[in-house]
Computed example of a mutant assay.
Amino acid sequence: MKTILITGGTDGIGKGIATHYLKKGDRVIAVGSSAVKGNLFLQEAKQLGTEGRAFFLKADLSLVKENKRIIQEVKSKFLTLDMIVLSATSHIIRPAYTETEEGLEFNFGLAYLSRFVLSFGFKELLEQADAPVIVNVCAPGMSSAVHLNDIQRKNNYHGSKARNHNSRLNDLLGVAFAEMDTIKKIKYVLFNPWAVQTTGVLERIENPILRLFTKFLFKIIGRPVEQAIIPIIELLDTPPEPHLTAYIQRKKVSLTKKTFDRDNAQKLYRDTILLLEEVKKR
Rank of each mutant, 00 (worst) to 15 (best):
K15D: 09
I17A: 05
A18Y: 08
A18E: 02
L22D: 00
K23Q: 06
K24C: 00
G25H: 03
D26Q: 01
R27D: 01
V28D: 00
I29T: 10
V31G: 06
V36N: 06
K37W: 03
G38K: 12
N39M: 02
L40E: 13
L42C: 02
Q43K: 14
Q47P: 00
G49N: 04
T50N: 01
T50C: 07
A54T: 01
A59K: 11
L61K: 08
V64F: 11
K65F: 04
K68P: 00
R69K: 15
I70S: 09
I70F: 14
I70Y: 09
I71V: 12
V74F: 13
V74P: 06
V74W: 11
S76K: 14
S76G: 15
K77V: 04
F78N: 09
L81C: 08
L81Y: 15
M83C: 13
M83S: 15
I84L: 15
L86H: 15
I92E: 08
I92H: 08
R94E: 05
P95D: 11
Y97R: 09
E99R: 15
E101G: 02
E102R: 10
E105H: 13
N107S: 13
N107P: 00
G109R: 12
L110I: 04
L110K: 04
Y112T: 07
Y112A: 06
L113G: 15
L113E: 11
S114K: 09
R115M: 04
S119E: 07
S119P: 07
F120E: 05
K123R: 15
L125V: 04
L125W: 13
L126E: 12
A129C: 07
D130S: 11
P132W: 13
P132M: 13
V133Y: 10
I134P: 14
N136I: 03
N136C: 15
C138Y: 05
M142L: 06
A145G: 02
N149T: 09
N149Y: 05
